[in-house]
């Protein structure tokens, strides 16, 4: 399945069905982050229940501390 993450196409395996699994796959689960799924901002508690399907557009922004 192909989705768009931060503007770039990303091929994800069929085993990835929701946002929480995608975040783990991208190894971002330890980050404090905000996800927008098809132009809707998701609260963290919605990550698990939000299914991903072909062609979905995601924006993922994580917080960093450097400066």
């Amino acid at each position: 399945m192909e989705i768009i993450v931060n503007g770039d196409p990303l091929e994800v395996s069929e085993g990835i069905t929701n946002i929480e699994e995608l975040i783990q796959e991208l190894r971002l689960e330890k980050k404090s982050l905000i996800v927008e799924h098809n132009q809707t901002i998701l609260k963290k508690e919605k990550h698990k229940e939000t299914a991903i399907s072909e062609g979905d557009r995601l924006e993922i922004v994580h917080f960093v501390g450097g400066g």
Partner: peptide, 20 residues
């Protein structure tokens, strides 16, 4: 907006986070 970018990966993200 919450604005983020990765210059090396040529990515630019802008999220409307008012609902948060």
């Amino acid at each position: 907006k919450l604005i983020a970018f990765d210059l090396w990966k040529n990515q630019q993200m802008e999220l409307k986070v008012a609902s948060l």
